[in-house]
Write a protein that binds this DNA or RNA. Sequence first.
RNA 1: GCCGGAGUGGCGGAAUGGCAGACGCGGCGGACUCAAAAUCCGCUGGCCGCAAGGCCGUGUGGGUUCGACUCCCUCCUCCGGCACCA
Length: 835
Amino acid sequence: MADYDWQRIEAKWQKAWEEQGLFRADDRDASREKFYLLEMLPYPSGTLHMGHMRNYTIGDAVARYRWMCGYNVLHPMGWDAFGLPAENAAIKNGTHPRDWTNGNISEFRRVLRRFGFSYDWRREISTCEPEYYCWNQWFFLRMLEKGIAFRKKSKVNWCPECQTVLANEQVIDGFCWRHETTPAEIRELDQWFLRITQYADELLNDMAQLEAGWPERVLAMQRNWIGKSRGARVRFDVADAPGLSLEVFTTRVDTIYGVSAVLISADHPRIDEILVGSGRDASDPQLKSMRLKSIRAADIATAEKEGFFTGRFAMNPFSGERAPIWVANFVLAEYGTGAVMCVPAHDQRDFEFAQKYGLPVKVVVQPASGPALDAGQMPEAYTEYGRLVASGAYSGLAFEQAIEKMALAAQAGGFGKSEITFRLKDWGISRQRYWGTPIPVVYCEKDGIVGVPDDQLPVRLPDRVALTGQGRSPLAGVAEFVNTQCPKCGGKARRETDTMDTFVDSSWYFYRYTDPHNSSAPFQKEIAAYWFPIDQYVGGITHAILHLLYSRFFCKVMRDLGLVRHSEPIARLFTQGMVQKGGVAMSKSRGNVVGAIEMAEKYGCDTGRLYTLFAAPPDKDLEWNEQGIEGAARFLNRVYRLVDKHAGRLRGLPAALEAKIHLSECTAKEGRLLRKAHQTLQRVTNDFNQRWHFNSSIALVMELVNEMSAMEPLEADCSSAILKHLLGVLVAMLSPMTPHIAEELWEMLGNTGGLARGKWPAFREELTREEQVEIIVQVNGRLRGRVLVAETLAEVETRERVLADPHIAPLVSGKQIVKVIVVPRKLVNIVVKEK
RNA sequence: GCCGGAGUGGCGGAAUGGCAGACGCGGCGGACUCAAAAUCCGCUGGCCGCAAGGCCGUGUGGGUUCGACUCCCUCCUCCGGCACCA
């Protein structure tokens, strides 16, 4: 008897699948249903550990299950190949980002192949290749034409020591990642943005389509991120300054008679005009410090309220009162209008500000019930809704009517209107980096900003560039790149030297997989229409907001460009949990990784896959445990031995799965095993289709194996045909999870044609049913016994059998039976009370 | 503060309103062996009991129900996201 030689088996089947092209998706197969299964595009960095592998193992199990069920499956893989780490490595070690990246890609590809994942490798893409990023540029140009791509000034982090722009992740606690004592500064640069806010409402509303297939928490996070808020915009004219006014955004226009001041952000666009005559200007130290702080995110929430009076007053258009204009550090320039009305009685922040600076507190809303508010006695702001008081003509109104009427009055008076605001900001895509997609525009002295014509794409990234980590964009130092001709007038022009955010690459890559080698378009519409939407996307929760939101946005733009007809690219999303060791996520920097290749070499990839799926439900975090792997390895050994022991006798028999079997002709042992096998099959099938509780599926298969082992010698009362069927079902169920050993055992059993495609066995309902079932007997809801009855026994008879049972009868006698609940085939509960 | 998620043996976890702790890990005992490893078998939530059996038990307190780990409400703890968002 040979041992389970996973080394040989895994190599053998990986080679066979590759040679047969078994997992190639067919773009035009109308005879089978399509299934697009996608795992999130990996960033190839360093070595792959088991934390990465969990994502692919889950995806592969589902893909293989669908293959076995006869679907036409698209299961592709590629590389998110642009990005900062490659550039950092270049600065540190002098390697070219392309070499560093391609080296990592080779390693990733090797590991994924070693695990035998069912990818259609013909569709592999790498986003750093011109054949790919060409289409990033093409999309950018379409967006430029539609006004979705535009330029505006924006803040960046700047390290004065490096003389360079820092990405957010290069700023650590406010300091440069390479100079721990140099605080990052804020600079303003002209940058490119994509107008995602144009789709804000649609991005929010279309989530209704996703509710069935996306995790609720991801939708909640996106909703939160988009942050829709209904309110009103109201104009306050600045006193003694004709033509100068401030607009505020408020969700509580009903409190406008309680305004004590108008507060503006230190970064308000009209602050210079407001400060005229105040003795302060833009160089004021207090103003400067407030501006600097505005980007330091961490301690904002706890920061002390701070501000100063500008010397100016604003006219409240409702009450006609003069309100002082203050600059306040808690007013955000980026949200709403950058100015707010300060109503201390009804907003907690305003209350704290008013306390500190002695601004008056005016109560204009009284609670519907309870004691009336007294401005002098309030410990905190009253932020609930109520009935208006001291609000001129609006006094006495409930807040709903007040908000509506006041917005209408503002509109009629020409000083405001109701408005909806979003927290979502436009997407800044400019990066002052080398290793990314060049933004395809040129700057011409005569024609200004000119998009590069489509026939000149791609704008290639030059290979020779000095990466020193200093200066603005590295491309700016490459003369032959920068200097070019204007496509319009042929005159001298300079190329844009910023590159795109890598989230652009990953916002549409899944379309490219449908037609990866197309050189005249990002993809052919008809092919994408066949495969989309993605039936199942699998990835980490870390991408819950940005990647998924940008992808949804891109889809809508593509729809408006006529490339696709759908509005949402991803029908179902699954977010798997992290793999931890020692209670924290596996990561190189923590030094707690279990290398994927090391794992495969020590135990075999099937064992690694099995353990990954068995140790925890896929959506929960998984604690890696070496002894658990040993358990998984032990189980596969047992399965191997079980099949190996009987394979010799069974090899010559006809096909295993379709065997015609009738329980009435079976021995007791055969019946028991057949029932167990088909009950297991039923639940495993259900788990694959709906619940994805692979850990439970595996436990059930283990039970089946235990039961078969316990009945050895199986040949004694089990016909060869039935045994072959049983082992065939067992092996088939394991195939999506541990495909190599399953395929080997399938072959050992004498089956031909392979197991991986079209061989998922249908469970037979009639084989899952028990002849006799154990009925749980409860008295007043407490377990008091069990009774074996025929599966078909009617409710009345069941009830009688139970009441007559020698264990139960004494518990019931002498008492009044109030009620008997009978759940057929499961349980009887007798409700009694003392007479 | 707001929004999500979780809380079950020594551990990972199972149980889609119906036997709480399946399955695995670990532990204990045994078989095989000169011995060990591997493998196989048995036991393994707590308390009471010689036993049959009984009682308690799914973070807390309440509710719905014949029946609650499961549904509803309160509170506690932990994890994640967002956060002077006007």
